[in-house]
Every structure is written in structure tokens, then in C-alpha cells.
Design a protein around this nucleic acid. Structure first.
Lengths: 337, 337
DNA sequence: GTTAACTGCTTAAACAGTTTACCAGATCAT
DNA sequence: ATGATCTGGTAAACTGTTTAAGCAGTTAAC
């Protein structure tokens, strides 16, 4: 920068102002300086800029410490939305995994304290993750992505799980299903509780009271989904439909059903949640709820950037979800009754 | 830092040396200063550290600009390995997407020039991506992950595609298959050419000469795999086995086969490549080649960090792959002959 | 007729560290 | 006693930006 200033016979401050399109710089100086910049191939050092301006223009994404978190299409789709939008807003995205060590050493706070990042996204958090309160307490910008905490004053952007669940229950009931089981994930997650609430309510409305024996925990994984399917069929062999709270569990359940010699959807209908890409290509293709994950991520990013700039107030948005009917659901079969 | 120095009645230089475990600092001063640091909750500003030390300890991952790149388990697994190892080595990971604009504006170079990052990983690149030469030319540390360029002097870490392909061909031939088709990806990719080379050679060895009518391009996607399956069956209805160069294409092909009323593996065996996690849970579960993607990513990270520190020489490693037999392959059926 | 707000630019301080050259005192060999 | 070496520390220069304050002259507002 000094070199540019020298060659253009102006001060470094002027060069700085040229770079920042400060209106106080005359057209002539603008052009003169820019010409030298191009000639010299000068690029401002972002570390120095950040040091001085107090903004790093870097955002962190905190992912749960699952072995396959990065290769999980669910998180991937959120990440995709976040990254695309961040790029458009001139921000970089950094990846972090919320390992126990990471949290114990308060690294999630260090990210801010040491000026690594301006803001943070939390993905896959639930009520047991007490650390999320730290951000708000310290006044660091943070947005919960596709999750929320009614009791805490935290920013969030979330897909409409209730509406999605309503649509699933409607279609299953209309297809004549009465023996509907639910494969849930961790009930420490508010969105899962939303689905469970809708499930119980709609079953009750339809006159088919269910108890917790109709609900199994699939731990959000394929293996868990398979195990949950086992549990359910053992407790209720008369089950004609299984509603899983995410696609991975639905896939695991479906795989297990086929292994057990059941026909999907002939004997048992299966419905997922999320609509991750592959689900159109499994056999049978999976009926599921499409969540606008990309858009949720993108919107969260927009709002986080506003927060960083001190603009946004309370951030809380809910984005629409819709059912995608495929081949894993059908009208209840005669003998299923 | 000034505050710490003052309270400990030493200079800021001393505080800096304490933080960096400089041996010139006495035990007594060490302890005295550290006590004040803890008391004040002081955290060194990484921007200032980087500005001064010339190292950012940030690495960038350049992903191809595919709509679902982030949610692709293939990239996810590589990313997972990279991130875990980077964390252990005290480095942060930044995400970048190689969009046309990005490259046109030389942003991939700016990342280095503006001191954003110390090094870079390139994922999913092929011979058409001329920009990869820029790094070497400018002397910026870069490692190609799970891909390589025999003609260029670039660092890389790659899974052993040839050995994987050998294993596939061995098992298919042993199962009695003769009419084996190949679904390839972009032939601009060296690893794909490796597979194609093995395929042709082994078919030739076994006395079953094939020509390009037995090879279709599946563009690495499920849709492409499905279309490729169509092509192949149209040209060669007698096909008894399909070998796809990645799992996504295998899944697409399998889905199409089932749609066409074929039984997998009864009528047609299908083999994939990569062993992404879900493939154990599709119907039928997919026989595929397990690539140590996590390890490839981790190793690439180790080597990149060494490169950044100026230690490593030429980096070029190949990691072993092995076949995973599942339910999508079987002995060739009588009528298939 | 005074005050205030421009004009386009410069100077210097601030941002928060690291590193190098140097220094005073202690230790050691001659 | 003298010079050489070691020890533990300091002051100052350095990294590359942004930004507040200021310069002297012009113009608009009250």
C-alpha cells in the first residue's frame, strides 16, 4: 500500500479511501490510484483490514460432533445455503465441530474473543447443549439454524415442522391408515417435539388414541431407524404406516422392513422428513416432507450478517414445508385392517 | 496485552514470549505472567498474530460448483477427514466454491494474496480446470484431494482406484459375468480413466472384448446413472452386470433397472464405487469399493500443513481401497447367458 | 456578519501482536 | 583482574490497514 501511495504521490490514507470508495476522493485521484494499483497488482491485506476495522467478515458454522456430520445431506443442504449467501454478502465461512473438548475449552467463545469470526451458526443443537446460552450472554451474534428454543431469547430460522407433520398425518389418515407409528429423534429437540405434538393431536382427533408404545427413538440414523422399526413391529405387528422424523431413519426402517419380508408400501407405508436428494432414487422412492433447507440456511445467513452489523432486532423466521408424494406410501391394504 | 504486561510489571514483548513458550523466559516470570493472563481472561488477537507472523493457520477447501456439492457424502467424507485433522493441527478450515465468477476474478489466488489462507485443498477437479496450475506457478501450497494429474507437478493424495477396479472386475468375472457394462463419469478425470483402463484390460484378458458401446457417461449423478443404464440396456439388452464409477450413479442405475422391471441382482448385478454411508441401507444394499475418503482427507491435510511450513517435498500418496460385497451382486443367472 | 458545512487531501494515532537488536548483571575460564 | 559467554529481559521497529483530526479556502444558512 505504501508503494502504491508513493507511486501515485498520495498518502496511504488516500489509497485506503480509494479502495473503500470514499466519496471524498476526487474522480481524478480515484483513477490515478486505481491505475497504479492495477499496475502493481496490489491486493489489500485482509488481516490488516480486519485488525483495523474490527470486522473479520468470517462466519463460523458449528456442526454437531457426529462422525458423518459433514457427509450428511441434511447438514450439507443447510451449509450450501449458508455458503452461497455468505459469498454473495462478501463473507467467508469457517467450519467447526462441537466436540466435547471444543466446548470444554470454551473454544466456541474463543472464536469471538480472539477475533476469528464475526458471527456463528449453530446446526443440530438441542436442549441439552447448554453452551448456546453463552453467545447471547456475551452478546456475540449467533443464529440457530433449523431449530429453536421457545424458552430462550435466541435468534433462529427454522422450517415449519408443524405444518409438515400436519400434511403427513393428513395424507396417511386419508389413505385409511389407523395404525400409524412414529420414529422420533432426540426428544430434546424442539422441532421433534413439534412433530410429536402434531402426531398425537391428529391421531387423537381421528379417534385413534396412541400412547408412547407407538413411538420409538431412531436417533436420527439409518441404524437407529432400522432398530426402531424392529421395536415398533414387535410391539404392534398390526402397524400399517411408519412416520419417521427424518429421511435417514425412514431409509433404515424401510430397509429393515424389506429384510423382514414386508412389502413397502403394500404392507407398510413409510414417510420421511427433510427430502434429502437421494430419497427420490431409493427403492421404493420415499414419500417425505420437503424442507427448504437451502433457503433456511441462506436466510439465516442474511439475518446473521444483519445482526453482525447491528441492524436486525430479534430474528425468528419459519419457512414453509410441503409434502412430496412418492412410492413408499399407499392406501391401506385390506388385511392391514 | 498491554494490560497484562502492566499488571505483571513486564514488557509486552515478555508477554508475547510467555504465550509462545519462548525458552528465554524464566519459570518464575512464566508463572507470574500466566497468572495475570488467567485473572484478566486475556486472549491473544489472532488477527494481530497472523499479521505479524505471516501465518494465518487457515486452510481453504475448494469444492466444485455443483448444486449439491456440500450435501454430497463423497465430498463430505473428504471434508470430514480434512477438518478433523486440521483441528488437531491447530488450523481452521474455510469453504469455497469454484464458481465460474470465482475463478474469473482470480479469487482463488486472492485467497493467498490477501492473506486469507496459508494453503488450499482442491476437491473434484479434473483436466479441464486449468486454474489448478496457477497455484504451483505462484508457489502457493495446494494439494489435490483424491485426484491427480500425471502430467503436472502437483501435490496429491488419492485412493487407489486401479486396485479397487481390479477387485471389482475380479469378482464380477468370478461370478461368471461376461456382459459387463461400465458407467463412467467425466473422462477428463484421471481416476476415472484409471478405472476405465482396468475395465478394458481385464475384459480383454478374460477374452471378452468390449468397445465404447459398453461404456456410458453418468455424469456422477443419480439422474445420469439412470440415463446411462437406459443407454446401456438399449444397446446391449444382454447386459448382466453394471459397474458404476461412483455410488450415486450406481444408485440411479439400480433405481432405473427396478423401474424397468429388472431384478437386481437376479437379472443384473450392480457395483458402485466410493462406499458412501447410505449404500448399506438401500434396497438391495450395494456392492461397492470402499475408498478411505476420511483418511485421504486427513492425510492430505497433514501434508498440506507440512508444505505450508516448508517441510514436505513432493507430495504424492495412494491409499488402499477394498471391495465390500453386499446384495446387489450375484452369480450370473442361467438365462443371462 | 458570523457560523457551519462543505472541498480533497494529509498526518498521525490506533488496531494487537512478533521479532530483532541491545543491555545489564551473573558466571566462567584464563 | 580481564575478557568472554550466558541469562533474562526491554525498547523499538515492524506487520498493513482504517480513521479521527486537521488544513485552508469556498459556499450556504441564519
Amino acid at each position: 500500500m505504501r508503494e502504491v501511495a508513493q507511486q501515485a504521490s498520495v498518502s496511504v490514507a488516500t489509497v485506503s479511501m480509494v479502495l473503500n470508495d470514499n466519496p471524498r476522493i476526487s474522480k481524478a485521484t480515484q483513477i490515478k490510484v486505481r491505475r497504479i494499483i492495477d499496475k502493481l497488482g496490489y491486493r489489500p491485506n485482509r488481516l490488516a483490514q480486519s485488525l483495523s476495522s474490527q470486522y473479520t467478515r468470517v462466519l463460523a458454522v458449528l456442526l454437531p460432533p457426529l462422525r458423518h456430520a459433514f457427509s450428511d445431506p441434511y447438514f450439507g443442504e443447510l451449509l450450501s445455503g449458508i455458503c452461497d449467501r455468505a459469498d454473495r454478502l462478501g463473507h467467508k465461512v469457517m467450519l467447526e465441530s462441537a466436540k466435547p473438548d471444543f466446548l470444554r475449552e470454551r473454544k466456541h467463545m474463543e472464536l469471538f474473543e480472539r477475533r476469528f469470526v464475526d458471527g456463528m451458526f449453530c446446526l443440530g443443537v438441542n436442549d441439552r447443549h447448554h453452551f448456546i446460552k453463552d453467545f447471547a450472554a456475551a452478546g456475540f451474534p449467533m443464529v440457530c439454524v433449523n431449530n429453536y428454543f421457545p424458552d430462550l431469547k435466541l435468534d433462529y430460522v427454522v422450517a415449519d415442522y408443524r405444518s409438515g407433520a400436519e400434511q403427513v398425518m393428513n395424507v396417511l389418515l386419508q389413505l385409511g391408515h389407523k395404525k400409524i407409528a412414529l420414529i422420533a429423534g432426540a426428544s430434546e429437540t424442539q422441532t421433534i417435539r413439534d412433530i410429536m405434538g402434531v402426531y398425537s393431536a391428529r391421531m387423537g382427533d381421528a379417534g385413534f388414541e396412541t400412547d408412547e408404545s407407538w413411538i420409538a427413538d431412531g436417533r436420527f440414523t439409518e441404524e437407529g431407524g432400522a432398530a426402531a422399526a424392529d421395536e415398533i413391529l414387535e410391539r404392534h405387528p398390526e402397524t400399517t404406516a411408519i412416520f419417521a422424523c427424518n429421511d435417514k431413519m425412514a431409509l433404515g426402517a424401510m430397509h429393515r422392513l424389506v429384510e423382514l419380508g414386508k412389502n413397502v408400501p403394500g404392507d407398510v407405508s413409510v414417510v420421511g422428513f427433510d427430502d434429502i436428494q437421494q430419497m427420490a432414487f431409493v427403492n421404493p422412492s420415499l414419500t417425505t416432507v420437503h424442507l427448504p433447507l437451502y433457503e433456511v440456511g441462506a436466510r439465516a445467513c442474511e439475518l446473521l450478517v444483519q445482526r453482525v452489523r447491528g441492524k436486525a432486532q430479534k430474528v425468528a423466521e419459519r419457512m414453509p414445508a410441503h409434502l412430496v408424494l412418492r412410492d413408499s406410501t399407499s392406501i391401506v391394504s385390506g388385511r392391514g385392517q
